[in-house]
Write a protein that binds this DNA or RNA. Structure first.
Length: 217
DNA sequence: AACCGGATCGTCT
DNA sequence: GACGATCCGGTTG
């Protein structure tokens, strides 16, 4: 278990998403699912969405039933469904009314390894358990039931914090690059942040235009 | 290690 | 009716 837990409070999350996102690297996200076990992940890769004008953000075109949690309080969990089969988890940042969130893309399992393995039977290596946003969501046992959950509320089963685990493995250099899978006008935003040299960082490369052997017309 | 295709459905146009 | 903030397994080099 985690003895020396220092939770991140709402004030930490109530800041611009571009400040919160890189500082989240190296912190620990923990889910206590009760009988199914406790799993904790040390975050190694995240992406920022929202802010002033971000065409890549779900909140860019205004509030809808799907993205309404993004407009809520900092510290909420925003979990959405994509590609017909995958769930992805985000942390809402900034003040109420500003649709900003950090997509949790990858991490290293630091507690509850056996429970994480059970939830991801297909994974070949432990570093793959939470490598990628949909994988991380599964390994932690997060589902659509957790959409809108307040991670700062007393007794929340999901919470962010710092611990000796993170201190023993200090966050190295933070790298910034373009966000994975984001095209269009927001494609060039260097809002993907990861820790250098981490095996658990998602291998997927940023969106690139297709190449052909022949020369363009 | 890189590349491909298939799976699969909620959400907004 | 189109398209995703994706993953996996197979194939090829």
């Amino acid at each position: 278990m985690i003895d020396d837990w220092i939770p991140l409070d709402r004030g930490f999350f109530n800041r611009p998403v571009l400040e919160v996102a890189p500082e989240l690297l190296g912190t620990v996200l923990c889910h206590d699912a009760g009988p199914d076990g406790v799993v904790a992940v040390r975050l190694t890769e995240v992406e920022a969405y929202g802010g002033a004008d971000d065409p890549g953000s779900h909140g860019y075109r205004g509030q809808t039933p799907r993205n309404s949690v993004m407009f809520g309080a900092p510290g909420l969990l925003y979990i959405y469904f994509t590609y017909g089969m995958h769930w992805c988890a985000n942390l809402v940042t900034g003040p109420v009314g500003s649709p900003s969130a950090v997509l949790l893309r990858a991490g290293e399992i630091v507690a509850g390894l056996s429970a994480a393995r059970q939830r991801r039977p297909g994974a070949h290596a432990d570093r793959d358990l939470a490598r990628g946003p949909a994988r991380l969501t599964v390994a932690l046992g997060l589902t659509k039931q957790h959409n809108g959950l307040d991670t700062v509320a007393a007794g929340s089963p999901v919470r962010f914090g710092r611990s000796a685990i993170a201190t023993e493995r200090p966050a190295g250099t933070v790298l910034a690059s373009a966000r994975t899978g984001v095209g269009g006008d927001g494609a060039h935003f260097p809002w993907r942040f990861c820790l250098a040299g981490e095996p658990s960082v998602s291998p997927y490369k940023p969106h690139v235009p297709k190449r052909r052997n022949s020369v363009a017309p």
